[in-house]
């Protein structure tokens, strides 16, 4: 056991050492290949320029190789694989796309994903904003924020166990040990098997992600709220606006950009939601979403890389507008630099 930990720490040390060695050695090699000698002014300046031209690529090299192998190449390969058969051998044209278009499971997943997209980002942003506004006004607000923020640190699998226990159902006359059913029965209702109620079970799964992500929205929005210039609020107070009007007409418009960022960030997360569905229902009872369907096809019956690639591309297509927007934004920011 400790041998394994030791080997992990060893790998870390060796890995860091090799990385450091690479950068150090490549720098030395550069100085050897393009030497700067006293007396040879023209040669020295030419070599200095050459060094300056090569050095960025030495610094960037490992990162670019990793990005290339693990992200850029797979994106292209997945696109190509989507036109091939299940084993990735024979070209099948648009057959996989046609399959997706007519497949009931695929349509179900798209529908559920749209449902998630409609509910989760909105709910997280709304609760996050409300909690940010409320906690900013009380002396123990930071403690409250910490607690709402805490689920961010919990894995989706861990959170699924936590919530599965809340949704637990026990048949017959057994005492309900799941909190939700205990509340329902104490109010005189009948206990329900929440996670196998078609359609509504999607919402019970969404609650888990909302529970996790509201803290994120709260932290970002809270920082934005603190950045609002005081004068604008003072002016509104002098004009006789009430708290409600100040919130909706003065504060919200000023943090609109941040709200958009929070919304899109959670949207991307929702598109990739996988762990929660896998652990709660594994897509049963009409809860399948795209990421799970894709994973399912990756391994079902030995795996179908073509269909699975098509599903991955649908997720990719959905994030592309956000991606383009981010790149534009980054270019605009970098313009001044």
């Amino acid at each position: 056991m400790f041998a394994q930990i030791l080997s992990a720490v060893g790998v870390m040390v060796v890995g860091v050492f090799i990385c450091a060695l690479y950068y150090w050695l490549s720098d030395k090699a550069l100085q050897l290949v393009f030497p700067v000698r006293d007396g040879d002014v023209i040669g020295a300046s030419r070599n200095l320029n050459r060094r300056a031209a090569v050095r960025p690529w030495l610094f960037l090299g490992p990162a670019l190789i990793l990005l290339g192998v693990y992200l850029v190449y797979p994106v292209i390969a997945t696109f190509i694989l989507s036109f091939y058969d299940r084993a990735g051998q024979d070209f099948v044209g648009f057959a996989n796309y046609r399959w997706a278009f007519f497949d009931a499971g695929f349509r179900q997943s798209i529908f559920n994903n749209i449902l998630w997209l409609a509910v989760v980002p909105a709910a997280c942003t709304f609760f996050g904003l409300v909690i940010a506004v409320l906690t900013d006004r009380i002396w123990w607000g930071n403690i409250a924020k910490s607690i709402v923020f805490m689920p961010m640190a919990i894995s989706f699998v861990g959170a699924s166990v936590i919530w599965k226990f809340i949704y637990e159902y026990r048949g017959g006359n057994d005492a309900q040990i799941g909190l939700l059913n205990a509340i329902v029965t104490s109010l005189g209702g009948n206990p329900q098997v929440w996670i196998s109620m078609p359609f509504w079970n999607n919402f019970f799964l969404m609650v888990i992600l909302i529970w996790i992500q509201t803290g994120f929205a709260m932290v970002i929005l809270s920082a934005a709220l603190r950045g609002i210039p005081e004068e604008t609020i003072e002016a509104a107070v002098i004009d006789g606006a009430n708290g409600w009007q100040i919130f909706w007409k003065i504060m919200v418009p000023q943090i609109w950009g941040t709200i958009a960022v929070v919304w899109t960030t959670i949207t991307i997360l929702v598109l990739k939601v996988f762990d929660i569905v896998l652990t709660m229902t594994n897509g049963q009872w009409d809860t399948m979403v795209l990421a799970n369907l894709m994973f399912d096809w990756m391994f079902r019956g030995g795996g179908d890389s073509g269909r699975s690639a098509v599903i991955a591309l649908v997720i990719m297509a959905a994030v592309t507008p956000i991606m383009i927007w981010n790149i534009r934004q980054a270019n605009r920011d970098a313009g001044g630099h």
């Binding site: 693990y70 992200l71 190449y73 797979p74 994106v75 390969a77 997945t78 694989l81 991307i268 598109l271 990739k272 990421a291 894709m294 994973f295 990756m298 890389s305 699975s308 690639a309 599903i311 991955a312 591309l313 997720i315 990719m316 994030v319 956000i322 991606m323 981010n326």
Partner: peptide
């Protein structure tokens, strides 16, 4: 923002 799903099959 590239989804992890894009990388899985080729990798």
């Amino acid at each position: 923002v590239v989804p992890l799903q894009m990388s899985l099959i080729p990798l």
